[in-house]
Design a protein around this nucleic acid. Structure first.
Lengths: 199, 199, 199, 199
DNA sequence: TATGAATGAGTGTTCATTCAT
DNA sequence: TATGAATGAACACTCATTCAT
């Protein structure tokens, strides 16, 4: 009987290796040879577990989204049930000092760009894209009129993505950048919440 | 007897072809053969005018930045000299219905991601990145205290980039998307301007 | 405690699976993975029972030849003992409507071509090749002079192989093709038999 | 300006190299690396001139058929206009001592087998297959009733193919084999022609 | 100035084979 | 006896680059 349970172990191993390599050399130069070497396995194994390279990349993207989702759940659960605190939890999840690293930031952007020409990835991206907007708007609706809630949701979602995007280019230390990003988001959020018509 | 002025003609021709091809198939599949075919020239010509493929990509990036810069100049000149109108001009330049097309959006993002692993491109990106922030902050300083001007500048720059980013994934008609983006920016700008301490 | 008789069962199972797969995708694409899947066993089993892939192919070829041989025996036994009827039995064995299927035809040809570059297969092919000729000539000698018997044997052997060969390309229904082949053989046989010098 | 007229030269060069390699190691082992080495060029050149390996194999098959066709034309033109001589010309073309070599024989069979699973090749094969039959039948109709002409056509076509097939396995010297093949065909042809109802 | 023929290293992928279980 | 995980060489194919013309 062959070893069992290898599937999951190897898949995690390969996904991590892929993200590491993409971070190091970029997607264009992330060959299977490099990835396999990083994972300490042979090249043939990829087809065994992921079918082909696209299968591997798909799995990587899902992993990234899953990581973000879990971070979101973690922060959401700890937040008190006010719109402001719930939205702050979303912000915190996106700029979590503990779990956000340069590789994560870069890989995220790389996949965003890649998804423009890969239908599978595009679908995954769009789902996540809309989720951020919905989550924000759902909370905002509790204190703002519909129209304003939508505008605020769009603004905050774009603000979060844009700050993330700009962080990728930033030469400053990551921790500082994350703190600054959270701060800017908080302030911008406050502005929108204060715009509520005081009855 | 060499033809005069061919250099510039060919360069423009090749840059446009490159952007078209990148839009169509993505950077990964944008081979010189495809680009040359699109431009209606032979493959060998690229080395003649750009040295190698990286030289061509550099030139493409400069072109994109130049286009944006010219759009910015155009809108800036027509704006009345109030901080709000000057900032609106920046917003308008970034979401100009006339000059912003899907190819431009996509190529922009592609180059952003690519720059993460190419020093030449990274330098260009950072310059542009900082310019947007400085331009915004310079105007905001006229009506907001330093600290707040910086926060507002960060927020608006990220908001613009984030909206652009999200537009690339959006399945909605571009014109609608651009109008919505401008509107969200205007509203967010208004919030920051109103946050000024009334003396 | 090893199961008794598994060897023979597995071997038959794998040989049949191989022939099926070769018929479906051709020899070039008949991978062990595909064959194992078709047989409902694991890939590793092949080395266990046949050593390697060549061993399996050898066994397949022997099976094909054995099938033909058994068909020949069957028809020969039922034929009355005249040269004409014995030769007709050979013809019938080669174009037996009951046992000849498209897969059998195709696989036969595939192995013929393959044998040109595999000594093991070549040996098997030649034995069979000569047997057809000898069987025919042996009967023909009973009614024709030596020289003519040889010529007729050559002609009929080639006719049978050629008709089989052409059947593989034919788009017409197999049953029709087989009947036509038998008919043409019978007629050609009659011509040779009638060429006997009437003493 | 690049060298002109290279296309045709290289194509011939590569087709010949391919046939040589197939003859030597079989189709399964005829890698592009081997073919390129045989032709004295680089591997990349194949895609340049034939698109891919299948394109090259197609071209090889066309070449083989063209060679046979030209041999046929040659012999046909020199034959006097009697059915017997015209048919003998066909036979001679198929067993021409000057132009028929072991490589040609083997490659022919290899392509026949390969065509069973490649639609492009199958189409080419069938055209040729039918042509042999039509050419024979057309002549036979001049001296035999329709039904008999068809039967004789089928028989002679199959006889030619079958003799060719059996030649591929034969260990005897080729020239002897070819002579024997012609002789058997002639005799068999004579039998059919004599079967004509004497008016 | 411009061509496109030619190269050859590099890629993703396939696959027979091995082997620990 | 049987599995399927794992290997790594071999493969077809791509492509930036070079260069004779």
């Amino acid at each position: 009987m062959p070893k069992i349970g290898m599937r999951e172990i190897r898949q995690t191993q390969l996904i991590n290796a892929t993200l590491t390599v993409i971070d190091r050399v970029g997607l264009a130069d992330a060959s299977l040879a490099l990835i396999a070497k990083q994972a300490g396995v042979s090249t043939g194994i990829v087809s065994h577990y992921f079918g082909d390279k696209n299968g591997l990349l798909d799995a990587c993207m899902r992993q990234i989204l899953l990581d973000l989702y879990q971070r979101l759940q973690f922060h959401r659960e700890r937040a008190t049930d006010s719109p402001q605190m719930k939205i702050r939890a979303i912000i915190d999840a996106n700029f979590d000092t503990a779990d956000t690293s340069v590789p994560v930031l870069k890989t995220w952007l790389v996949f965003w760009a890649e998804s423009l020409h890969h239908d599978n990835l595009l679908r995954l991206q769009r789902i996540n894209d809309r989720r951020l907007y919905s989550n924000l708007t759902a909370q905002l609706r509790r204190v703002l009129p519909e129209t304003q809630a939508k505008a605020a949701g769009s603004a905050l979602a774009a603000l979060i993505d844009g700050l993330w995007l700009r962080l990728t280019l930033s030469p400053q230390p990551l921790e500082q950048g994350l703190e600054h990003a959270r701060s800017v988001c908080y302030q911008n959020l406050a502005l929108w919440l204060n715009s509520a018509p005081t009855p």
